[in-house]
Nucleic acid binder design. Structure first.
Length: 220
DNA sequence: GCGACAG
DNA sequence: ATCTTGTCGC
């Protein structure tokens, strides 16, 4: 397998932070306009120095899978809290090139605005692709919050320095909550509603849940 | 200096 | 994220 080079392959953490401060100026958070017909879940798994990105697209509101695109690439950036995008974006972009459908929204396994510099993986992907994106993380990176009620649908605000940066959302009764935040081209309320519309019987919304499965590196 | 820390 | 089997709880 041959792996093309990518600008982020040789970047330093200092330069990475500079890139985030530069790109974040392009983020916008309007109410989601056009209705969502296709939602795409994004996730990456890494094993033995190789990253496998998966983009699974499903119809709304039926949630039927209409496309699955994956791509593998050697990872060249370490895991640094706050700089996850530089580790996962190269592989994700390779997978994007293999998509056969046009999507209306990306649901990303990671943070959006709920990030120390307000520019998590979801924001970064949204700006680069010019698409609406939602950050749907399984745990907290930054911010304070009160534990939401145990019932599915319960939510509390995730705040930092006095501002609301996301929503802590119980996607299913008695499971750990999700940390939802805007990535790009969508407001927080719309983001939460989009995630809600993609829930079935599991903790994770279908797009992200399917992308997680499709990104798994298996040994056959 | 100490603790926290998406995946 | 990954390393890993059976098992407790809703």
């Amino acid at each position: 397998m041959i792996f093309r080079s990518h600008p982020y392959d040789s970047i330093t953490t200092k330069e990475a932070i500079k890139v985030q401060l530069e790109l974040r100026r392009k983020t916008v958070f309007p109410p989601l306009g056009k209705e969502t017909r296709i939602v795409t879940g994004v996730d990456v798994s890494i094993k033995g120095g190789v990253a496998k990105a998966a983009l699974v697209s499903l119809t709304c509101p039926q949630l039927l899978i209409v496309d699955t695109a994956t791509a593998c690439r050697r990872v060249s950036f370490p895991y640094v809290p706050g700089l996850l995008a530089f580790r996962e974006i190269p592989a994700i972009l390779d997978a994007v090139e293999r998509m056969k459908v046009t999507t209306d929204l990306l649901m990303v396994d990671g943070q959006g605005l709920a990030h120390p510099r307000r520019f998590g993986l979801a924001c970064h992907l949204g700006v680069i692709l010019g698409l609406p994106t939602i950050g749907c993380a399984k745990s907290r990176l930054i911010g304070e919050y009160r534990e939401p009620g145990e019932e599915k649908g319960s939510r509390t605000p995730l705040t930092d320095k006095g501002e609301t940066i996301g929503t802590v959302f119980r996607s299913r009764t008695s499971v750990k909550p999700l940390f939802i935040s805007s990535g790009h081209m969508i407001d927080l309320e719309s983001a939460v509603n989009q995630v809600l519309g993609c829930l079935t019987r599991y903790r994770l919304p279908e797009p992200t849940r399917e992308a997680h499965k499709a990104s798994k590196l298996k040994m056959d």
